[in-house]
Design a protein around this nucleic acid. Structure first.
Length: 187
DNA sequence: TTTACGATTAACT
DNA sequence: GTTAATCGTAAAG
């Protein structure tokens, strides 16, 4: 059994995406509580892993409980957690966190004061935590990563995913109810 | 080698 | 609320 911070990473990406809401993620001690995720799977046309392994998405086909970091729009780094079993190609995109640790470091990296917009979006979050391609394929249960169990029973909201052109109707986006730190409001 | 395309963001009105 | 800029990938030539 592969379990980190009370989350089983050998489960389906949808289950992992739900379970991650409320979990605290830190990178070199900087980070916060996960408030928004999206599930992706190899059978999903919107997923990077759809169509099999390539150089870019290799991490998605590696062991679960590891990071998959990719460049989006050629500009932004985005952080995913690999799940299910090695070789499957399932993952969870971390879309937003509520900053709790290292606010000053994040503000300096982002050149931004407003905590609400500091990590509300996959690209913003990665910039605030200092995530780069160097974090691709790193295990989530050892430095610089640290995952801490959710301190509460999270109330979960569900909606279709954002910013994709395929499989748009699949309700595979999950968020923490009432959080002001999500990238876009839930209906 | 060339080209089309985004799992977005920032800067607008 | 809207729109334009952005450039690493991967697939095609």
């Amino acid at each position: 059994m592969l379990e980190i911070a009370n989350v089983r990473f050998d489960a389906d990406s949808i289950d992992v995406a739900r379970a991650l809401i409320g979990v605290e993620v830190l990178v070199d001690g900087v980070g916060g509580r996960i408030v928004e995720t999206e599930a992706y799977d190899a059978s999903d046309p919107a997923s990077h892993s759809y169509g099999g392994p390539t150089t870019r998405n290799a991490a998605l086909f590696g062991p679960p409980g590891h990071a998959y970091v990719y460049r989006s729009y050629g500009v932004h780094w985005c952080l995913n957690f690999v799940c299910r079993e090695a070789g499957h190609g399932a993952g969870v995109l971390i879309r937003a966190i509520e900053p709790t640790h290292g606010l000053d470091v994040m503000r300096e990296r982002r050149r931004l004061i407003d905590a609400r917009r500091l990590c509300s979006g996959p690209g913003r979050l990665s910039q605030a935590l200092g995530i780069t391609g160097a974090h691709d394929r790193l295990p989530l249960d050892s430095a610089p990563f640290e995952l801490r169990p959710s301190p509460m029973i999270a109330e979960i909201l569900i909606s279709p995913r954002i910013g994709i052109s395929k499989a748009q109707d699949m309700p595979w986006r999950f968020g923490l109810a009432g959080s002001r730190f999500v990238s876009r409001p839930f209906k």
